[in-house]
Computed example of a mutant assay.
Amino acid sequence: MDERKLADLAADLVSVPSHEDETAAGDAVEDWLRHETDAAVTRDEHGNVLARRGDPTAPSVALVGHHDVVPPGEPQVDGEGNYVVEERDGRLYGRGSADMKGAVAASMLAFRDADLGDRTEPDGSGAPACELVLASFVGEEVGGVGARGAIADGFAPDYAVVAEGSTNYSKEGVTDVVVAHKGRRASTLLASGSNAHASTPDRGVNAVYRACDAVDVVRGLEFPEVEVMGECVRGSVAVTGIDGGSAWNVVPDECTVTVDERTVPGEYAPLDRTEEVPGVEWRVEQDLPPMACSDDAFADAVLAAARDAQGGDPEHVSKPHATDAGWLAGAGTACVVCGASEPGEAHTDTESVSLDVLSRCYRIYRNVAEGAGGFVG
């Protein structure tokens, strides 16, 4: 693989604005796949780009990414609204370089180049061991809109490598394999009371006091904890905002508390206990699912592919935040996460990705596809 071509493809994708409208970025992915591969390429009604090659009757192995991004920071756009893309010191800078158009580019090239011949035959003859799938979703940054739409339409690969960040998790200089990640549940506690003049507070019911009682319940909750393939995944719950009251001299009749919960596979914190406080209602605003890999052999095979692709010693690790792997795992796909982004890179005004690590990810993804005969059922 020509590393220059990978860097150029990544830069081309990063240069296309996709924080408000992913259409042009999706066009770029789709056009490249149609010109560079003989795969069956489709664009669904949600805007997702899907491509397939290999034996459609064989188990499917998907390389999964997304081409939407969060809004760019001021240094990441020029005076005409174009995305600024720079290459220096072996890194590619720009909105979406780490999260995650760089890994999408590595996935696209690996999808094109992977030899899908049946590795169980000495002469390499026979049907491909898998159907290889490339999926680039829309709307990951706003709750997995594209992934959810594709799943609702029947997208259900047997295995998936989601190319979100897993680099430098266990140690510096390696790209690890994530076998579990946390989800995120966003909740609102609505406390109600009754107004009164503040000079006679006993004539009212103070909603802020009720909200504070509910906060005390949250503060006392134990965080759920599970183990996935030897990895301890511990959740968390935090009150992140409180808003109530209309004037200095009025006992408030409403107060709102926001709660951020990081969930773990199979477990939630018992936030429903807050409703034991009189006048408090608990509402779930968003629930992004956690992920746990459901197939040990697949997780081990991806780790072996990662070891073969680099000089360091990668490990099975967990990840602190949600990805589209959570939606896919919930639909029955055996998932891992493996990609170039490092902790602290995504969503920053200085976002960048190592070009050497993108090349490493290309090798990992290709190794997984070409070694599918060792884990497909």
Rank of each mutant, 00 (worst) to 15 (best):
A186L: 15
V142Q: 08
S199W: 13
E285S: 07
M291H: 12
L134S: 08
Y169Q: 06
A7L: 07
G26R: 10
T188P: 02
A28E: 12
S107G: 15
G371A: 01
M229K: 00
D158T: 02
G139D: 01
A127D: 15
Y93C: 06
G241W: 09
Y268H: 14
E345C: 13
P290Y: 04
E222F: 07
K101R: 15
E30H: 13
Q286N: 14
V376A: 06
A147D: 04
G102W: 03
D349Q: 13
A346M: 08
A292L: 09
A297W: 10
V239M: 10
G204Q: 07
E121W: 01
R91C: 09
F155T: 05
I364V: 15
A28G: 05
K5S: 14
V250Y: 06
P59Q: 06
V145F: 02
P265I: 04
T37K: 06
A62W: 08
S194T: 14
A331Y: 03
T37S: 11
S352R: 11
C335D: 04
I151Q: 03
V142Y: 01
R43F: 08
E315V: 00
S318F: 11
I242G: 06
S341W: 09
V85Y: 12
G94T: 10
S187W: 08
D113L: 01
Y362L: 05
S97M: 08
K182E: 06
A135C: 07
T348R: 13
G149Q: 08
A11N: 10
P122E: 08
T333C: 07
T256R: 15
D8E: 15
A62D: 01
V104S: 03
D89E: 14
D68W: 00
A106D: 08
R219A: 14
E275A: 15
A40Q: 13
V162G: 01
S170R: 02
L190G: 01
S166C: 03
N168V: 03
D8K: 11
V233R: 03
R234D: 00
Y83Q: 12
H35E: 14
R91M: 09
E80I: 02
S192N: 09
R185V: 09
V162Y: 07
T333N: 05
R52T: 14
A322I: 00
G154V: 06
S60L: 04
R360H: 06
R4M: 05
E261C: 13
F298G: 12
A147P: 03
A292R: 14
V257D: 13
Q310H: 06
M1L: 13
S236P: 10
V239D: 09
L328F: 13
D243C: 09
V239F: 12
V138Q: 04
S187I: 07
V251E: 04
C255L: 07
H19Y: 10
